[in-house]
Amino acid sequence: MHEMSLVEALMEALLEAFEKHPNWLRARRVELHVGRLRQVVPEAMIFCFDVASRGTPLEGACLDLVEIPLEAFCEACGHRWGPEDLVFFCPACGSVDVETVAGMDLDIASMEVEEGDG
């Protein structure tokens, strides 16, 4: 259960963006990209966000979690594929020299903001 500390980091990053843009009034929607390998429980993340955003320009914004599929790359034969779950042998050549190239992401992709005249 580390969603609260992830939300704290998320709030810090988003509020920093608001400070840089005084004409932004409030956020409507925040899109996060969450890798399939990340152990994030969406309901817990959204609950924490709703609590942490109270009294800030992010209050009431919709937190949208988009799952990013796994992608693996074999260093030995160059095969690139999208496994369903953790896999560590290349299905093409059997090598164990396999890198996970996507699926550990935890990124703020975009935000919809209401702008004022500022």
Binding site: I108, A109, S110
Partner: peptide, 16 residues
């Protein structure tokens, strides 16, 4: 006016 802004940064950027 509602505007969509690209952010493209890791949630844990500060800690990273």
């Amino acid at each position: 006016m509602v505007k969509r802004v690209e952010i493209r940064q890791s949630v844990m950027a500060a800690d990273e």
